[in-house]
Amino acid sequence: MNVQLNDFENYTTVYLIGEIDASTSINIQNALQNLLDNGQKNIHINCEKLEYISSAGLGALMSFVEEIENSNGLMVFSDLKPKVLNVFQLLGLDQIMKIVDNHQQAVTFFQN
C-alpha cells in the first residue's frame, strides 16, 4: 500500500494506491494527520489505484471527517472502483462522505 501526495494552492490530492487493511491503514492515518498538522484542511482522496479497502482503512479515513468539518475544511473522494465504492455503501458511508465520480469533479469543489 502506498500514499502519494500532490499539493495545490488550496488543497492536497492524496492518491491511495494498492490495498488498505488493518496492517497498512496506519499509512493513511499518518499521511492525513501530517496534512492537518501542516494546516491543510481541504483534502481530495483519489482512489483510482485503490484496489481494496477494509474497515480499518475506512476507520482511518472516518477518524478525520469530524476534525476537517470542524475546521471548515472539506474531504472529497473520487474515482472509486465499483467494488471499493460498494464497501462504503455497505456501511452507509456513501451517504455521509462526499464522493464524486472523477478527479475533475472533485477539484471543482476546491476551486469554487
Binding site: 474497515s55 480499518a56 475506512l58 476507520g59 472516518m62 477518524s63 464497501v87 455497505l90 456501511l91
Partner: peptide, 8 residues
C-alpha cells in the same frame, strides 16, 4: 471506528 468489521 471499532465494530465496523463485524458489521460488514
Amino acid at each position: 471506528n471499532g465494530g465496523m468489521g463485524i458489521c460488514l
